[in-house]
Each structure stands twice: as structure tokens, then as C-alpha cells.
Design a protein around this nucleic acid. Structure first.
Length: 480
DNA sequence: TGAAATGTTGGGGCG
DNA sequence: ACGCCCCAACATTTC
């Protein structure tokens, strides 16, 4: 039997549009497909609970696709250096292919692997495909990495976009079987049990390549037509909800890009809306670009003057926010959606993040950690970039003084209260007029709606005006 | 991819 | 008829 080529799956859990896998298959030798659950490499951000749920289902989907082609997905956990070296020796492979990653710990790992494997005569080849433009190939006129989105995106748009790679030959017989010992997926215990907080998630999400394709098709045939305006209303399903599929690499961004482009070519009325959608894909690229060039982004404020910012918010404030008990319905609804579904609408993410940093003065890194643990689409680059943007400490960030008013945001984007009533059923009977500020309702109105402030729903943890002024003062202090 | 404070304008009530 | 005031509506600036 010919020596196999190892394909090491990472955050690229798909078979189509995968340059490294195409290359591995093109060698004409059996491909040994493996996935390594790595929780030990130095600096690794161990996957959060919601991500683990997704990973479980995504690996199940990938494994059964590979099995349908006569292969097997080899699962194991530990440090990739040792595992891949052993696997190469055991199978006789002298070539390992994989996709690149851009997290600092993952890049360090790739470097270490190069050495560790090279000394044993095994070659590690890394391929792109997880982003549209490799972060080390882009620079501004001064030859520096971009720090501002607009020029970054302008530059990207002027570059040719590689089409998705042709479908590899996924022929039966090109896959290696029966490498032992392998883990069983269930042994990893990626799914929650006591309690099972992921109840009903299977109806909401379909992890895996097929689920990703279905969602993209649905979006391009529907919501994209009103994307520019519709995406702001959290009660509507007007966004693509592709983020987790993209994070786990279940769909190549190039496929999303070209599918969106051909949809707008077929129907010119969609052009503006599609461009808006693509620019959101641009933010994903920008985040990766920033993390690649500024690896401390998840740990340290990008702007130096934020190093001394007085994040005085403590455990009490953080807990109220995490549990959706701040007393501001727009904030609480978002935090409940997150906890119950592993997802939050993007407009609401901005509102709740602003509230944590600016109303409660809690360090953005605490929010980042919570999102990391609770979001199915948790992504180191997007998460760090998003939180620094909101906190005002990031590159090309929202100015610090831009403080969202949760009431105003509710009135603008959830006027009829559909979103709030969905996630805060205890307020559902309140008239629209008081839904965004329950504390302004009279005792009689509250009683009729079955609301007891401080019991069935909390009083506001902070006064909006006071909190706003305190945040502005803290910022002014820091600058001085 | 804000909100609040401040400034300007114009209609209407009123003496 | 006129000036004055109030205030809503909109624009600008400030944080």
C-alpha cells in the first residue's frame, strides 16, 4: 500500500473549496484525515462551551461525509507536535497538509511543528483559503499593516479575488482507514449534560458543510434583498447567520463572496444590498488582518492611553450583565438570547457591549471572555476586534464618547417590542410605551402587566444619565 | 455602525 | 398689524 498523505483538519471543517485538501488528494495517495482537539498548546484559547457544542456536530457531519467516501476521520486530542509526528511514523506519511490559522498561539504551533516534523523528514505544508486575502500579503502605501477599515477594504476591492478552488476529486478509495488508536467523539464530552443548556439548538443550527450551504442559499434568495436596512432589526431574521459556519471553516469565504456576486449580477436591484453584505465579510478580513499584525489584540488595548483606564466595574455589575438582569430591556433581551441560543444579533451585540464597558465600566476583556464562552461563532480575531471597537481602545474604533442609549436603540430598532417580548416574557404584557423603560410605568400599569420591579424584573442597575456622565469623565481623565 | 446639548427657523397663540 | 414668546422641527456642535 502506498504511503498516505495526512490531512490535518483545523478550523476548516469542510471538503469543498479546501486548497490543502485538494493538494493532498492530488498526490494520488490515500489521505489520512485527522482532527486534533488541542487544549494544551501554549497560549491556546481553550474552546468555550457553545463552540464545543458546535464542534461536536460539525465533526459529526464531516466524519460522516468522509465515511460516505470510504474513509474515516481520525480523532485525537493532545499536543499536535507529538501526535502528528507519531501519526506520520505509524502510517509512513512524509507529507502533512493543513490550512493556516492566524491566532498567535496557532502561528507559534505551526512554526514549532515545522521544526519538529522537519527533523524527522516529514514536510508540513500550509494553505490559505480561510480568508479571502492572506494578512501577510496586504499592506498600505507606506508598506505597513492597515489600521483603518476603509482604506483596507478599498485596497482589497481592487485586488482579484481567487475563485473557490475546483471541487477536489473526492473519490472512494483515496482515503486511509483503520488507524488505531483513535478517540470516539463522545469521549470528548463536548455536549452539555447537567444541565443541558443547548436544548433545542439542533432545531436552530445545522453545523457542517451542508448546513452552511443551506443557510447561504436561503439568505441569498431572501433576506439579502433588504440587507442594508433589515439587518438592523433584531426581531427579523435579516442577517446571514453564517458567522459560526465561517469560523469553523464549513464554508470558504471565497464561496460566499462569489455566490453573493453572482446573485447580484443576476439581479442588479440587489447590488447595493450585496455590497453591504460583502463589506461585513470585509470586517472579518480586517479583524484577521489586525490580529495577525498585532497579536496582543485579545490581551491589551491597541491604543496605549487605555492601559490606565479605570475599569471600576466589579463582579456585581458583570454578573447582572451576564444574567440579563441589568433592568434595561434591550440589554437583557440580548444577553438572554445569547445564553439561550449561543448567538446574538449584531445590533444588540453593540448595545450590550457598550453597556458593559461604558455604563458599568467593566473591562472589555471580561465581556470578551463571556462572549468567548457563550457564542457559537466565538472567533479570537472578530471577538477581540469587536470588543476593542466598542470600548474605544481599538484601531479604527468607535469614539469613546459614542455611548449607546439602550432605550433609544430599543425605540429605533424594536419599536413594537417583538424582540424584547421574545426574550423577556416577564415583560410581555407591558404596553409598548413602557416596554423599553419599565420603571416609568405607573404602579397600576405594572400591576396589570404582572410586573413587580425588583422581583419579577430588576430595577435599572445604573441610571443612564449618571452612568453616561461618569464614563465621559473617566475617559477625559485618562486622556489627561 | 450615537446621543445630548446647543443653535436656528418658522408657525401660531396672545396681548 | 405687530412684536413677543413658546415650542416643535430640524441642523449643528460637542462629548
Amino acid at each position: 500500500m502506498k504511503n498516505p498523505v495526512i490531512y490535518w483538519f483545523r478550523q476548516d471543517l469542510r471538503l469543498r473549496d479546501l486548497p490543502g485538501l485538494s493538494a493532498a488528494l492530488a498526490a494520488g495517495r490515500p489521505v489520512l484525515a485527522c482532527y486534533i482537539l488541542d487544549e494544551e498548546s501554549p497560549g491556546v484559547w481553550r474552546m468555550g462551551g457553545a463552540s464545543r457544542w458546535w464542534l461536536h456536530h460539525s465533526l459529526t457531519a464531516l466524519g460522516s461525509e468522509i465515511e460516505a467516501l470510504g474513509g474515516q476521520l481520525y480523532l485525537t486530542r493532545g499536543r499536535p507536535e507529538g501526535i502528528l509526528a507519531d501519526l506520520a511514523v505509524q502510517s509512513g506519511a512524509d507529507l502533512i497538509c493543513c490550512s493556516r490559522q492566524y491566532e498567535p498561539w496557532a502561528r507559534q504551533l505551526e512554526e514549532d511543528l515545522h521544526g519538529a516534523l522537519g527533523s524527522r523528514g516529514v514536510t508540513l505544508k500550509r494553505y490559505g483559503g480561510s480568508v479571502l486575502w492572506e494578512p501577510d500579503t496586504l499592506s498600505n502605501l507606506a508598506g505597513q499593516p492597515f489600521k483603518v477599515f476603509t482604506p483596507f477594504w478599498r485596497k482589497c476591492r481592487g485586488l482579484p479575488i481567487a475563485p473557490p478552488v475546483a471541487m477536489p476529486e473526492l473519490r472512494f478509495g483515496l482515503w486511509q482507514r483503520d488507524i488505531r488508536p483513535a478517540d470516539e467523539l463522545r469521549d470528548w464530552q463536548l455536549l452539555p449534560t447537567r444541565p443541558n443548556w443547548a436544548q433545542g439548538w439542533e432545531q436552530r443550527w445545522q453545523p457542517g458543510e451542508r448546513g452552511a450551504q443551506l443557510r447561504l442559499d436561503e439568505f441569498l434568495h431572501g433576506a439579502v434583498a433588504d440587507y442594508d436596512a433589515g439587518r438592523n432589526y433584531p426581531a427579523r431574521q435579516a442577517t446571514s447567520r453564517l458567522s459560526a459556519h465561517l469560523h469553523f471553516g464549513e464554508m470558504a469565504p471565497a464561496r460566499v463572496f462569489h455566490a453573493a456576486r453572482s446573485a447580484s449580477a443576476a439581479n442588479p436591484a440587489l447590488e447595493q444590498e450585496t455590497e453591504k453584505f460583502l463589506s461585513e465579510l470585509g470586517w472579518r478580513e480586517f479583524s484577521t488582518h489586525l490580529l495577525y499584525h498585532f497579536p496582543t489584540l485579545p490581551e491589551q488595548a491597541f491604543k496605549a492611553d487605555f492601559a490606565a483606564f479605570p475599569w471600576v466595574g466589579g463582579a456585581r455589575e458583570l454578573r447582572a450583565w451576564q444574567q440579563g438582569k441589568t433592568g434595561y430591556p434591550m440589554v437583557d433581551a440580548g444577553m438572554r438570547e445569547l445564553w439561550q441560543t449561543g448567538y446574538m444579533h449584531n445590533r444588540v451585540r453593540m448595545v450590550v457591549a457598550s453597556f458593559l464597558c461604558k455604563h458599568l465600566l467593566v473591562d472589555w476583556r471580561a465581556g470578551q471572555r463571556w462572549f468567548w464562552d457563550t457564542l457559537v461563532d466565538a472567533d479570537l480575531a472578530n471577538n477581540a476586534c469587536g470588543w476593542q471597537w466598542v470600548a474605544g481602545s481599538g484601531a479604527d474604533a468607535s469614539p469613546y464618547f459614542r455611548i449607546f442609549n439602550p432605550t433609544t436603540q430599543g425605540l429605533k430598532f424594536d419599536k413594537a417590542g417583538e424582540y424584547i417580548r421574545c426574550w423577556l416574557p416577564e415583560l410581555a404584557a407591558l404596553p409598548d410605551k413602557y416596554l423599553h423603560e419599565p420603571w416609568t410605568a405607573s404602579a397600576e400599569v405594572l400591576r396589570d402587566a404582572g410586573v413587580t420591579l425588583g422581583e419579577s424584573y430588576p430595577l435599572p442597575v445604573v441610571d443612564h444619565r449618571d452612568a453616561r456622565n461618569a464614563a465621559l469623565a473617566a475617559y477625559a481623565d485618562t486622556r489627561r
